[in-house]
Amino acid sequence: MTADPSRWDLFGSALWPIVHGAIASTIPMAVVSFAIGLLIALALALMRLSRSRFASGTARLYISLVRGTPLLVQLFVIFYGLPSIGIVLQPWPSAVAAFSLNVGGYGAEVIRAAILSVPPGQWEAAYMIGMSHRRTLSRIILPQAARVSVPPLSNTFISLVKDTSLASLILVTELFRQAQKVAAFSQQFMLLYLEAALVYWVVCLVLSTAQGSLENRLDRHVAH
């Protein structure tokens, strides 16, 4: 690529549609999917840790299915497969469904490990002061598990932001699809795909910084 002014014009005029795709679609899709995914992950982690064989077996099977199949296939099953049994979801809800179910599967193991990393003495002290199991979880165990799971869950979130580009394949007009459209029209594939990459990179940089400050905030009660 030479420094052709028309290329810079193209870069400039494509920037807004791409950034708009990020702001209007990629980021909200990632945030919503991640939030729902975390709830699924927490539920699965508690099922895995429960004494009920049925609950832990079900959760184990779910996690194994999610982690053992490609995200793209999960996305296609939901968007192109489900209509054949009468469930028709629009592109955006399909994408959110696939991404949340996926985050649920990956996050479950992270949260389970984080809960197990809290020393048993914490459960015992909570029992001693008369707390119920549920309260112990919410007031004593999960806050401590949260600190441990911030780094791995941040990785999950950053991966998710990048994986949302797959939603372009089910017609969600997110960041990457915007770039594709301009590229198809202008035939400047190299330029526009690099531009899309650059925008993803900036978003992920911002997220990494946010992760760092979240960790610092949660660190206020531990020794350094």
Partner: peptide
């Protein structure tokens, strides 16, 4: 080992 709640 005391078992105080470290986040409180």
């Amino acid at each position: 080992h005391y078992n105080l709640f470290p986040h409180k």
